[in-house]
Write a protein that binds this DNA or RNA. Sequence first.
DNA 1: CTTCCTGCAAAGGGTTTGCACGCCT
DNA 2: AGGCGTGCAAACCCTTTGCAGGAAG
Lengths: 175, 175
Amino acid sequence: MHDPIDHVRDRLGRQDQRLTPQRETVLRVLLEHANEHLTAEEVYLEARGAAPDLGMATVYRTLDLFERLGVVHRLDAGQGVARYEFRPEGEGHYHHHLICLECGRILEFERDLLEPVERAVEKETGFLVIDHSLLLFGLCPDCRRTGPDAPSQGASPPRPDVGERDPGASPGASS
Amino acid sequence: MHDPIDHVRDRLGRQDQRLTPQRETVLRVLLEHANEHLTAEEVYLEARGAAPDLGMATVYRTLDLFERLGVVHRLDAGQGVARYEFRPEGEGHYHHHLICLECGRILEFERDLLEPVERAVEKETGFLVIDHSLLLFGLCPDCRRTGPDAPSQGASPPRPDVGERDPGASPGASS
DNA sequence: CTTCCTGCAAAGGGTTTGCACGCCT
DNA sequence: AGGCGTGCAAACCCTTTGCAGGAAG
């Protein structure tokens, strides 16, 4: 019962829903790419390897379902695409995202460190904080090394593609 | 030269661009609604009062332009719409957004408090932080008072709809 | 058989782009 | 003239929805 797949099956069963082959495929893709922040389309493409008849709509519906179950995190980095990542059982809402403005990669930062901020907010405004999203935009170690304007290296992952525009322009979202 | 409008005109002039009547109208709307996080459509509707022939495309192009000039902040709270707010000259990237899951209102929190976090990130990961976006999801003082399930008050904005679900489930975006 | 699920295709909503015309220098 | 800027409409992209057929309990 430490198996995430069984866990999801149980959660679903409890509300008369099933872990269909399609759903299991999607779940497996998410598990195989933990910490990778796939888009729905990327999940779809990966999943089609195992389930060629799978449709996009099912992927979206499944990701939605999983999100409601708390099995995945949906993360919107401010470009027009949502990204999804598997969310280990019992994980708090810790861990923030570092988005490289140069190569688009998304790194993670595990420590929370936000409690002082949340406490200050609650105390000073009366707003009850339930969850948070912290995005840090900047340069990842690699791009920092290469210099902000160097042409992209063939070195790193395919590059998750975060919208482009001229580097130097301000990062879409902001606090 | 403290007038933001002149400031923008200058900035534009420097790159052979002009502060046209349309652009000025958009700018005025943003100024009149400082701290209000309007959507492009809301800007458009407001602006049409002063410039009935204005087109949506111009609004988008202008907001884009202003964003590149650093005159406005684009903020994406995780639902499918971008929101824009005037960004006072010389303002750092401080100030965070508190998004009420009940009524959809967006409040602001002026103090930064993120420096310890950013320093920790830079030190531990080598990632160079340039800007950030902190969204706190929860209940605003009003909704908190009314109770999480009270029918919406006539008091607040139409409610921008932030994903619903049982409060307690994680809100769409997350860090 | 009833309910849950699926794929397909169409619809949706926000945002962007192509194009021809207008405006300012 | 020569750009820059604009309105309009069409195009785009991601995501959602309607619907008829299937599978599971």
